[in-house]
Amino acid sequence: MFDIGWSEILIVAVVAILVVGPKELPGLLRTVGKTVGNLRRLAGDFQNQFNEALREAELEDVKTTIGDIKSLDPRVAVKDAVSKQLTDITSATDDVSKSIQQSTDEINSSLNENAEPEAVEPVLDTGHAEDTAIGTDENKKPVEGEEPSEDETQKAEK
């Protein structure tokens, strides 16, 4: 800190002997020594208190960090992440569902506007369920513009 060499110390000693005198020099040196000792002690105490305050601050940070780590529950973090993803998926499916419903409504309304009422032919119940095979209808008549199926053409040929 202070750059004092032996030559400066020798000059200070000679001046002290001349100013104070050789008789009172030992008492002066003792007082100066005690004062320097007190200053060193004060500086050491200040440095120790400063270091202790730093350690306490670091310990508080470490305690806080350890407390945060202890309170960290991976199950809760995973649960929150999954909940968020499910919410996002639910909102996306709701949007798609609304879009599909809107498209369906538009298609139905356009079909209803363009549709002409058709004559409905009554279905006659012959009362002979055993005569008709399941899945076939012998009484079915072809609709105009519709080609007869292979079964109908085979029956007509027989």
Rank of each mutant, 00 (worst) to 15 (best):
A16F: 11
A13V: 09
D105P: 03
R30I: 01
D73M: 01
S97K: 12
Q49S: 07
I107R: 08
A119F: 13
L86N: 11
I17T: 10
G135F: 03
E116G: 03
N48L: 11
V62W: 13
G145E: 02
L86D: 08
E146V: 14
S110I: 04
K70F: 07
D137M: 00
L86W: 03
A133R: 14
R55F: 06
S99I: 00
E138S: 07
E147T: 14
A81R: 01
V120T: 15
D105C: 00
S7I: 01
N108M: 00
I4K: 00
T35I: 05
G37E: 01
F50E: 11
K70R: 15
V14H: 10
T93A: 06
P148M: 09
D45P: 02
V62I: 11
G127C: 01
F50M: 08
K63S: 05
V14R: 15
G33F: 06
D95T: 14
G145V: 01
N114A: 12
K23E: 11
G37Q: 01
L124K: 14
E24R: 11
E60N: 12
L42C: 10
V36C: 01
A77V: 06
A92H: 15
A92P: 09
L25A: 03
Q101C: 00
T31K: 08
V36L: 03
D137N: 05
K155H: 09
E24Y: 06
V123Q: 15
V78P: 00
T132N: 13
R55V: 06
T87A: 05
E144R: 09
E157W: 07
P22G: 08
N108S: 02
A129M: 08
G37F: 05
A115H: 08
T87I: 03
L124Q: 14
D137Q: 02
E116L: 04
T126L: 09
K34V: 06
A115I: 00
V15P: 08
A133I: 10
